[in-house]
C-alpha cells in the first residue's frame, strides 16, 4: 500500500483504532481505521451527558460497505459531540485527527493501557 498513514505523537490509541487526546478529551478514529473503512456515510454518536465505559461501544460508524462499532478509550462523560459530522461524515475520512473528531469526553482518569503513537504504529504495521 503506497499511502502514508499518520500517527500524531500527542494522541493515545486503542487497539480498536480509536484515538484520545489527553489535552481536551477529544475522541475519534485513526487514519488507518478511516482508510480501511472507506467512504463514511453515517456516524451514530451518544448525546452529551452520556456515560462511557472504557472498552464498551459508544456508537457506530457506517461506510458504504460496512458498519463498525466505536469503543470508548476511557471512562467518562460525553461533554460535546462534533456538530459537523451529521451533515459531513466525510470529514472523518479527510481529517481524522482534526475536523473529524467525534466526541469530547470528561475522562475520570487517563488509563495507562492506551497505546502511544509508536506502539499503535507497530500494531498497525505488524
Amino acid at each position: 500500500m503506497n499511502v502514508s498513514l499518520q500517527f500524531p505523537e500527542n494522541l493515545r490509541f486503542t487497539a480498536e483504532h480509536e484515538w484520545f487526546r489527553p489535552e481536551d478529551g477529544a475522541v475519534g478514529i485513526t487514519d488507518h481505521a478511516q482508510h480501511a473503512l472507506g467512504d463514511i456515510v453515517y456516524i451514530e454518536l451518544p448525546a452529551p451527558g452520556a456515560r462511557l465505559t472504557a472498552g464498551r461501544s459508544f456508537g457506530s460508524v457506517e461506510s458504504v460497505k460496512s458498519v463498525s462499532e466505536l469503543y470508548a478509550p476511557v471512562d467518562g462523560v460525553v461533554a460535546e459531540v462534533n456538530p459537523e459530522l451529521a451533515a459531513a461524515p466525510e470529514l472523518v475520512n479527510r481529517e481524522p485527527y482534526t475536523r473529524g473528531w467525534m466526541i469530547r469526553v470528561r475522562a475520570d482518569a487517563i488509563p495507562g493501557n492506551l497505546l502511544t503513537a509508536a506502539e499503535y504504529r507497530r500494531l498497525v504495521e505488524a
Partner: peptide
C-alpha cells in the same frame, strides 16, 4: 482492487 480513490467518487 476494492477501491482506488474511494467508492463514492
Amino acid at each position: 482492487p476494492v477501491q482506488y480513490c474511494g467508492t463514492l467518487a
